[in-house]
């Protein structure tokens, strides 16, 4: 144990940072794109069914297959990994944003209109805050996926904690396998826990206002 930290301590910090960095960018991009897209979809009912359906189908594609398909297009390294992970993170967020917005009580939307709010104001002040917990649940699910698949992305040269795991598998070194697996599990659980708290934090506030 101490041996491992002596030998790989600085690497461990670096790989963990890489892991957080890749997951963070992918998830961040996913949030930036998926939430507005989900909101827009609620205003265009005709295509929403199709888009959500497509998103659900895409989500069933195994990550390993999706990551591999990026290689012929983008080559190897962090870039194709981020693209693939970004696509993956889109889907749960998009779906949950759409569902969250749809579930907002229509009378509240009417009330907002009645108060003279514009469409944009209604979304920002009424609908999004009410849908926040559901959206957060989507973000949380995406975060779990992205952290898990980032470990896998090491295989296409993205770096991150998966490097330890793959090296361990390649050399039959249990210290490397444990040194990669345990931090990545802790990372996943901590992020899930924090986002779970955030989800809870958002929930009572909206019920008070609603």
């Amino acid at each position: 144990m101490i041996n491992f930290f002596n030998q790989f301590g600085s690497q461990l910090i670096f790989k963990t940072w890489q892991h957080i960095y890749i997951s963070g960018i992918s998830l961040g991009l996913g949030v930036i794109v998926a939430i507005p897209l989900g909101v827009v979809l609620t205003r265009y009912k005709r295509i929403s069914g199709f888009v959500i359906g497509l998103a659900s189908v895409l989500q069933t594609i195994p990550a390993m297959a999706l990551l591999a398909m990026m290689i012929p297009i983008f080559g190897i390294g962090a870039k194709p990994a981020i693209v693939a992970l970004f696509i993956y993170s889109l889907l749960p967020i998009l779906r949950n944003t759409y569902l969250g917005m749809e579930n907002v009580d229509p009378t509240l939307r009417d009330a907002a209109k009645g108060m003279g709010m514009s469409n944009f104001q209604s979304i920002m002040r009424v609908e999004l805050p009410l849908a926040a917990p559901v959206i957060m649940a989507g973000v949380r699910l995406s975060a779990t996926y992205v952290i898990a698949w980032t470990a896998l992305a090491s295989y296409i040269g993205a770096g991150g904690l998966g490097d330890f795991i793959f090296n361990g598998l390649n050399l039959y070194r249990s210290d490397l396998i444990l040194g990669g697996s345990i931090p990545v599990i802790i990372l996943a659980l901590v992020v899930d826990f924090l986002l779970g708290r955030l989800e809870l934090l958002l929930t009572p506030k909206t019920t008070e206002e609603g």
Partner: peptide, 17 residues
């Protein structure tokens, strides 16, 4: 739920050990 949150590559490697 906790099992589900564990990244699959990590789980696979641990079970391999």
């Amino acid at each position: 739920n906790v099992i589900q949150t564990v990244p699959s590559l990590a789980m696979l490697s641990l079970i391999m050990l």
